[in-house]
Nucleic acid binder design. Sequence first.
DNA 1: GAGCACTGC
Length: 696
Amino acid sequence: MVSLPIVQYEEKIIETVERNPVVVVIGETGSGKSTQLSQMIHRRGYGKIAVTQPRRVAAVSVARRVAHELGVQLGEEVGYAIRFEDRTSHNTRIKYLTDGVLLRESLANPELKEYSVIILDEAHERSLNTDILMGLMKRLVKVRSSDLKVLITSATLDGDKVSKFFADCPVLNIPGKLYPVEVLYSSERPSSYLESSLKTALDIHLHQPEGDVLIFMTGQDDIEKLVSKLEDKVRALEEGSCMDAIILPLHGSLPPELQMRVFSRPPPNCRRIIVATNIAETSLTVDGVVYVIDCGYVKQRQYNPSSGMYSLDVVQISKVQANQRAGRAGRTRPGKCYRLYPSRFYNDEFLDVTVPEIQRSSLAGSVLYLKSLDLPDIDILRFDFLDPPSSESLQDALKQLYLIDAIDENGAITSIGQKMAELPLEPSLARTLMEAKNYGCLSEALIVAAMLSVETTLLPGQRKTEKKRKHSISNLPDGSGLGDHIQLLQIYHCWDQTDFDIGWCKDNGLQVRGMLFVKDVHKQLSQIMQKISKGPLDVKANGKREEFRQNYRNLRKALCVGYANQLAERKMHHNGYRTLGFQAQVVQVHPSSVLSLDDLGKFPDYVVYHELIATPRPFMRNVCAVEMRWVIPIINKLKTLDVYKLSGSIHHVEEEPEKNLQDLPKKDVEVTSTADDRESRIQAARERFLARKDKK
DNA sequence: GAGCACTGC
């Protein structure tokens, strides 16, 4: 503890905080900022301190450590609050919380009067929530100029930018406690970073002293290939010619027990080679790593507001990320980082910092949140973000919110919208719940919303257990042909009938952790709905299956209202769809869907979809059949939409061309096209589809 | 008939 570098800066830090409402702290890895800053401030007798973290585990573990250091019981003077878990009491002076929780608190109490000091930790990661909080803090220090202190911790490369954002506030540099890491560059970019990683790893294993190797790859696919190649090569080495090696994959879709393997120490005289995704960059820290191999790429999800589509692209990492990866080699002793790219790439091509999430996501939820705060001095299109999203992206959000009745034609939040903002859900699902209440199918809608909140994590370890899964999945319900939302509802009902038996999940290939999370979300949503409607509601999940069946129709009606911004119409003579948005997209039903064909081999005329994903062909993921008569009012509403009115008629789009979009690497974002372009692309897609059809 | 970086309320 004594050896933490930050300790000797205590006087300087306190002095700066006393004189300034906002202070930026550049704290390198190992500086102790997450545990010490709050304690220093606490010692000086400031009031209650909030420290945000972007991750749940971090909030819990840091709170635990601070409580231990202060010799108090966790939940008393020091506590934490994450979703589903509040371990604080009226005694709590230092509270660690996820940034999402602080945003929720700010919804109930926009001035956050409870806190005298707010520390936004890890702000350089630029999560969507942290960015919104930074914008809110900028306003809050003006409103509460006399009794609020804000500290923001950031990375070397953008400290000045954050300082500038907060009226040139002071920046304090706290060195970290990392050992030196020697950075070695390749002379050129390899044609295959997989082969290049393989070669480099073997080279290290044969010629470098002991110490574990951490290889950063982009995804599960590459990791599995590299792991198997490494295993082959290591096995082929002559016994006794070098030390042993064990190869470990590490990525998010690995079951937890396999992830844990990287935390157990290897046997003596054995080197570990860990092949990981970005999960090892910030989320998981592997001890014993001395050598890092960095391919220079990362897989990133991006939203394109002009098409309403998400894509998952392999993009170049930023300098901040490259440095973070290199730092993983210097935690226990001096290390080496092998960058599989030349230094001029790092210097000239890499962005300084990662493109913030706010510029890569659909903003419907965030805009609704900000509108619901009802801050008199805030105009949504002019909201002061550290890095503003494009006006195109904000307008996309406004249009979506208008279609689902969250804002009116003038862009003002409606009473429905106000209630929607209370729900920790994306706006479409929040709207579905509001409507389901009217149609008497709230209990069903709550389940669908909860299931979709964790949907991606439900089906585990696909590829390897494929055979097993195909066998077992046949035991699961099929959505009665009506689509994936209904299937998710049915799956939950089946689980309910087993009294939430964990064994049943395992038998059916459902991820246990995911399903338990669904249960928690379901409980939370039910409580909030009860609070919103100010009265008892029938939200019970159990009941007879026959009753549920009758309710599918009402549920689909509610989904149609909730997903008014995510509707698609089948094209006349085949099973392709055209989205009914502002910019029609030609899309297909994702092959994983359980939506069934009718006797003539056709899909339903109209569907709602949960998400459009370009992979690289455009698909609708999670679809549900709806009826034309429910769709017509929405089409009429679409016709009356006036985007200038929505965004407050004073501002015009042309003022700010898509500056921020153009800042992104070119190949990753389809720059908005002209109408002609779009037509020809649709035509091309049509032809491709017909050509495929002919082949059959 | 195809494919899943990582978080979070």
